[in-house]
Design a protein around this nucleic acid. Structure first.
Lengths: 223, 223
DNA sequence: ACCTGAACACCGTTCAAGT
DNA sequence: ACCTGAACACCGTTCAAGT
């Protein structure tokens, strides 16, 4: 036989030429972060995911930081871009819901924003559209500044809280913190959990529309 | 001479016994994250900071994850604990301002919340106090849930935006994202920046009180 | 031009060993 | 009991080398 003997750990074949593109690198990184969490997004794991050796990736991006910037902007690219139709409230409600849903699909993005806020095209495009909606419907520059800050603070913060709820892991809590912790030390939490959170029909997400309405009412008053 | 010859890189002496405690480990980790950023918080750097060998730390904490849980809770420990005085609005205003200031001092904490939300004693204590303020001043359980979600979403989100603004680094933006980017593609951002953001007296932080008032007004209406 | 292997300076963490 | 050194399996990234 001219074929080599079967190998328990066969080394994968050399990747074909042009199997990689910048977009495939970014999309693969988003996939990996979605599936395995942001900590699992290593250059080596991404290379395996893309069926390539680690160093091939460096032909398309400068380094890992550039990938982190890029996947944050890729997430912004999924968010609805509001239009200056004249109904600012309707448009910003749709955009806020879309932002929340998008961050819910990619919860790691919220945590990345703090250290990787370098704006990309998608982020700037969405930002510009929101400003356009406000400035064409009678909001002054100061009112626009306050309105924008309030909406995004609420939406980012709500998405952060939802991400937190999804990753709470009691078993993983530091034993040093749990030691000596006692349910009776927190009677209001216990009461709230038993009488409200654990009742049928409760869902944290129910508070999104309520809170957004508060913010939008406040913004309407600035106009 | 019985002393060894001078060494260019003298190995530091063995650390004295009981030089470490759990609290010193946690406080050292907070210092390091504050001073050098969360990425610089490695077990080895922390050991150097504490003048100890890396493995000594493991006598006080199970692993690095436990340290991350602990420093998040240490941050919550700096936040004002509201009291059930009857004036819910005043108390929650004070707590919100304190939370914002605290996260401003430790901006890395916002990013950690997404992956390390395991509640510690300080977090639960503050949480319990906020619930107590609301439940003793006439808020129903559902109203309390909405109020709490809205306040914390706004405060976390605002702190996240402030952290983002402080770490924007145009020079560090991925060139792939900046390539072909053009100021004239974002006319509203340009207009907003020139005519408002760059004018004297503007500060992003000015929007905090405005936004918080929107949320508190909305909460008052739930009562 | 595009992909790769070897190597380097880092990580977190185990384990056995000092004092 | 508390601190340590050596070692292991990982990282991101450089550089020179294949095709």
């Amino acid at each position: 036989m001219s074929t080599p003997p079967a190998n328990a750990n066969p080394k994968p074949p050399r990747a074909p030429r042009n199997s990689l593109t910048y977009d495939r690198v970014v999309a693969g990184a988003v996939d990996l972060a979605d599936d395995q969490g942001i900590d699992a997004l290593t250059m080596r794991a991404l290379a395996t995911h893309l069926e390539v050796r680690p160093m091939a990736i460096y032909h398309y991006v400068a380094n890992k930081d550039a990938i982190l910037d890029a996947i944050v902007d890729a997430v912004f690219g999924e968010v609805y871009i509001p239009e200056a139709t004249g109904d600012w409230r309707d448009e910003l409600t749709t955009r806020s819901a879309s932002m929340r849903a998008t961050l819910g699909r990619h919860p790691w993005a919220v945590g990345l924003l703090e250290t990787r806020p370098n704006p990309g095209i998608a982020s700037l495009t969405n930002h510009n559209a929101v400003l356009d909606v406000l400035l064409t419907t009678g909001f002054s520059l100061p009112a626009t500044a306050h309105a924008y800050a309030a909406i995004d603070a609420f939406v980012y913060g709500f998405a952060l809280q939802e991400a937190m709820l999804n990753s709470v892991d009691l078993a993983g809590s530091a034993p040093e913190l749990l030691a000596g912790m006692n349910l009776t030390d927190f009677p209001r939490i216990t009461e709230f959990a038993m009488q409200h959170v654990m009742q049928p029909g409760y869902a944290f997400g129910n508070s999104f529309d309520v809170g957004l309405t508060m913010v939008l009412n406040g913004i309407a008053a600035l106009r």
